[in-house]
Design a protein around this nucleic acid. Sequence first.
DNA 1: CTGAAAGCGCTAACAG
DNA 2: CTGTTAGCGCTTTCAG
Lengths: 347, 347
Amino acid sequence: MKQKPTLKVIAKELDVSVSTVSKALRDSKEISDETKQKVKAFAKLYNYRPNNIALSLKNKKTKTLGVIIPEIVHHFFTTVISGIENFANDKGYNVIVGLSNESFKKEVINLEMLANGSIDGFIISVAKETLSFKDYHHLSETIDQGIPIVMFDRVIDEIECDKVIVDDIETSKKAVQKLIENKCQKIGIISTKDYVSVGRLRTEGYKNALTENNFTVDENLILKIDDKFNSDDNLEFLEVQISEYINNNDIDGVFAVNELYAITAMKVARQKGLRIPEDLQIIGFTDGVLSKHAFPPLTTISQHGFEMGEEAAKLLIDRLESVSDDEENYITSIVKTEIISRETTKF
Amino acid sequence: MKQKPTLKVIAKELDVSVSTVSKALRDSKEISDETKQKVKAFAKLYNYRPNNIALSLKNKKTKTLGVIIPEIVHHFFTTVISGIENFANDKGYNVIVGLSNESFKKEVINLEMLANGSIDGFIISVAKETLSFKDYHHLSETIDQGIPIVMFDRVIDEIECDKVIVDDIETSKKAVQKLIENKCQKIGIISTKDYVSVGRLRTEGYKNALTENNFTVDENLILKIDDKFNSDDNLEFLEVQISEYINNNDIDGVFAVNELYAITAMKVARQKGLRIPEDLQIIGFTDGVLSKHAFPPLTTISQHGFEMGEEAAKLLIDRLESVSDDEENYITSIVKTEIISRETTKF
DNA sequence: CTGAAAGCGCTAACAG
DNA sequence: CTGTTAGCGCTTTCAG
């Protein structure tokens, strides 16, 4: 087992000083070509690589980003991470991921663990529990300490920071619009509780589309699923809620706020003997594996998670590397969505 | 924006030395209760937290694990990460993820980027390209440098290190056995090219089951999909390969080496007018969202990714924290699998 | 052109 | 009981 060489050992070996080695390797013009050659050759031979930790300590920056998400077993978040990784790596940054499992406490712990020098900034999608508690002190405190945060997807209006979102209202409106154009008469929405910003906004878009088309908004047609916790844990619970909803309401079109809800609605509807899309048209949100491989393949709104990730990483790195502290100059970036028409809608 | 306090500022503020503060905070018995009280109160007030980077530099360990996987947009890997995170966090470790995108080069870069002090050890599932190139120098070199590696799922026999795998041969045998018991007469397998260890082994298990039951092994019934790259990128290619295979072979049972292959086979078979499970029974490998939400829900082998992740993290942390360097004492841990019977098999 | 020294934040051996 | 010092690996003045 051969140890990693340090500047010190190279210096000793070559009988020069540490600072000479350091300078030679960074091609300082203070150093003679001869020594440079010698040092570089030696360094290459022994495969010298500067120690990241030492650099971090010295430079007060780690070149790593902390990403905190509610859960990783989720196609959307996973594509976002890909986007972040992709952009960050190109810029020489690493990515540490922390999972909150939708828990406020775990989110706080993760944040604190990483805020002590491990990372330069955060990219975060807030846990449902945090949203429902409305306790954001951990977030404002880290920003206060000079660690920038970029929020994506589930954002908090009260916190000032860079954000990347989808235009939930507008997008949802378009989806419902499509259902209306497809001759649906009674259109429902399967959403989340209102404290989840995306659920609230998408519901708003749904309502907007209805009123603009002179449909009346029937609150009974708005199902707000209660799943504070990992949705995989209570699949059956989800199913009964949706099943009840579909049985009690004679809808012919439904907009679901995420893939899982859409898929489940489809399953339940089929059990009830409804044909899709003839009897019931369905549009989901988030274009993941489930939608693509569902039977029939689901018409859905593509959220472009990869681009969101890239954009979030870009905003964060820009802020980290900008010389000026434009504290007030926060930007919220809206990434485009598109409807991918597959087979759960007539057109 | 209030700066993070350091020992130094606390020391100055309280007019004691840095080491006194350090010792007081760690409850050293060298320090008087009075000073301890004072220091701790102050530290709490200003929310002091030791700087991770400084600790890392001092201790020569970072308490973070590097996880390198081929792609993150993949349910199995994602559950493994969850397992790793879960175990690692409990032990006070963080997790950095690197994605190789199945590329040899990116794998090497990721490894090198992190091996320079950023992490204490690696957990890795090897990229397909690396497997096919058979170039493992980056792996042996990092082990050589004293950085332990734990491989999972896609492992390399030639490299000595801890490993976490599933008993692919035995498990696949059981799956095929089930098909035989379900009265399938002509059973095929949809696998990967042989350089992917799991594909090779699962094919071996398939053959074993057949011969043990006095079936003849027909090489035509063994489809080896060629997808060096991200399978999402060439879905259609996958589909034509499987479609051709199903059309040319009159099989009534098929074992697919992963979810996607199984789902695709199902889709293709249905297009061909085959009823499932009446005309064709299908068993997949890896219990992910696709299998669960497929129509009909897929009978599959649960690979227990979460447990694999936990086990990998455990092996790595054990090795990191063990005093003795049991270089030779590598262990390969086999995690159990189980067949989850759903609706693509008769029983 | 080269080296000594200081410092990033922290710990620990050693003096006092 | 408290402080000084050295050192982790590196960069960067500042002297020489």
